[in-house]
Lab assay of single mutants.
Amino acid sequence: MQIFVKTLTGKTITLEVEPSDTIENVKAKIQDKEGIPPDQQRLIFAGKQLEDGRTLSDYNIQKDSTLHLVLR
């Protein structure tokens, strides 16, 4: 499925993911596309910070959802 990741600069990254993918996995995909190390990434969805060990389906993230990427 496709999800979107919006950065603070207003750029939107499109990712191909599975509901069973972990947040860690998603961060690795963002690193592949953007070169941002996962340890600098914070992903936010519906006002919640997403934890590495959980999956997209744990957070009820569905296709065409938009996550927000904050760098630390």
Rank of each mutant, 00 (worst) to 15 (best):
L67T: 01
L67E: 01
D21Y: 06
D21L: 05
I3Q: 00
T9K: 13
L56P: 01
K63G: 12
T14V: 15
V70M: 09
L8M: 13
D32Q: 08
Q31E: 14
I36G: 02
T7G: 10
I13D: 02
T66F: 07
V26M: 06
I61N: 00
K48S: 08
I23V: 09
L67H: 01
S65F: 12
T7A: 04
L56H: 00
K11P: 11
V5L: 12
I61K: 00
D52V: 06
I13M: 06
L71D: 14
S57M: 14
D52I: 10
K63I: 11
L69P: 00
V26H: 00
K33M: 13
L43N: 00
L69S: 02
D39N: 12
Q40S: 08
R72M: 10
E34V: 06
K27H: 02
F45D: 02
Q62N: 14
E24K: 13
I44P: 00
D58F: 03
F4Y: 07
Q2M: 15
K27F: 06
L67R: 01
Q62G: 06
M1T: 10
I3M: 08
Q2G: 14
T22I: 03
P19Q: 14
T22M: 03
L50V: 11
D58S: 10
T12V: 15
E16A: 04
F45N: 08
R54L: 09
T14L: 05
K6N: 13
T9I: 13
Q49L: 15
L8P: 14
V70N: 04
T12D: 10
V26T: 09
T22V: 14
Q41A: 11
E24N: 04
L43R: 00
P19Y: 10
I23Y: 02
T55R: 15
Q2N: 04
I44D: 10
L56I: 14
D39E: 09
N60S: 14
K63H: 15
P38W: 07
Q62I: 14
R42W: 06
D64Y: 05
K27L: 11
F45Q: 04
A28Y: 09
G53S: 08
S57A: 09
I30L: 10
Q49K: 07
L15F: 03
